[in-house]
């Protein structure tokens, strides 16, 4: 198991390095940074001055290692647009996004897995159909529209919860529901399919032949094997929510990482874009690593690879 974790860590590290090179290169290949920073009305001398000030005259490899060395120390430089360091911008925004993503994923998991299990056990009954209907609605409904509906019902009409902002835990309830409902259907369907497959397997028949209780057959013998692909999916979904929740963040005026990335991209704020891309990528890698470790704990056959 330790060897497995060590090997997975090495893989994760090499992926992280690749991502850092790509994110560094992407910006430098999108045009002359000195000219875009200086703006259209600047003179050639000003552009040259900016090139020297920002270290853009040095060789690319040197620039990369310089940037990486600072990045490892969590120093991403200063934002071109916001009057602040990139790190303080991110440390303001990241907790908001992490809270939202974590809550949404927690909510989605808590609903998706039991619902998927019940739908599989009661296959082709009204319970199964109801679960599938709930899933299809979640997949078909645009999340911004569902978010707005939640605001209209629970904030505007009923006054139960705030409509926007991120000051208290109550501010996170509606966006977490909107984002969670978006993430839930895929997990629920995967749980259902996995359970159906596992419940038909020979080792479940063996478990039944031992005269075990139905609950022990389902939760001990079936769910553990059925949930493995769901763990991998959950990791990808959480990664997606960290980077891609910009829609929900705008609807609920949450000052999260998604909004920051959007603002930075529209304003050519390269240090911020680079840092956000790198941080989201690192989270993705960490989540995938975590999912691999959880799955290896669930299924011993995965430990040898």
């Amino acid at each position: 198991m330790l060897v497995f974790i060590f090997r997975r860590l090495l893989v994760a590290l090499s992926v992280a390095i690749t991502v850092s090179i790509v994110s560094f290169m992407l910006l430098h290949l999108s045009g002359d940074l000195a000219i875009s920073i200086a703006g259209p009305e600047s003179t050639a001398e000003q552009v040259e001055q900016i090139r020297i000030d920002f270290g853009l005259d040095k060789p690319m490899v040197y620039q990369y290692f310089d940037w990486l060395w600072s990045a490892v120390q969590l120093d991403f430089g200063r934002s071109y647009y916001f009057q602040d360091t990139v790190m303080s911008l991110i440390s303001d925004r990241l907790p908001v996004t992490l809270t939202l993503g974590g809550l949404a994923l927690g909510l989605a998991t808590v609903i998706a897995i039991p619902l998927g299990v019940i739908a599989a056990i009661k296959q082709d009954t009204w319970i199964d159909r109801l679960a599938l209907t709930i899933a299809v609605i979640g997949q078909a409904m645009p999340s911004f529209w569902f978010g707005l509906t939640l605001i209209v019902v629970f904030a505007v009409n009923l006054h139960w919860l705030p409509a926007g902002g991120n000051e208290t835990w109550q501010h996170f309830v509606l966006p977490a529901i909107a984002l969670g409902y978006y993430a839930m259907p895929a997990m629920m369907r995967l749980t259902r399919t996995g359970m159906l497959e596992v419940l038909n397997s020979d080792y479940i028949r063996t478990a039944r032949s031992k005269g075990l209780n139905e609950s022990s057959v389902i939760f001990k013998h079936a769910l553990r094997n059925a949930v493995i692909p769901v763990v991998a999916l959950a990791a990808v979904e959480l990664g997606f929510m960290l980077g891609g929740s910009v829609v929900i963040e705008s609807v609920f005026s949450l000052k999260g990482l998604g909004q920051l990335a959007w603002d930075a991209i529209t304003r050519n704020d390269y240090p911020v874009v680079q840092a956000v891309v790198l941080i989201i990528a690192v989270f993705y890698i960490l989540l995938t690593f975590l999912a691999d470790v959880i799955n290896a704990m669930l299924d011993p056959r995965l430990r040898v690879r």
């Binding site: 397997s201 020979d202 080792y203 028949r205 063996t206 478990a207 039944r208 032949s209 031992k210 005269g211 075990l212 209780n213 001990k220 013998h221 553990r224 094997n225 669930l298 299924d299 011993p300 056959r301």
Partner: peptide, 23 residues
């Protein structure tokens, strides 16, 4: 359930798939 498993038990045709891989 009490009878099955305790007083009668079964051996299956497929030894490769009849044991739970996770335990």
């Amino acid at each position: 359930n009490q009878v099955r498993g305790m007083r009668m038990s079964m051996i299956f045709q497929e030894p490769m798939t009849s044991l739970n891989p996770s335990y």
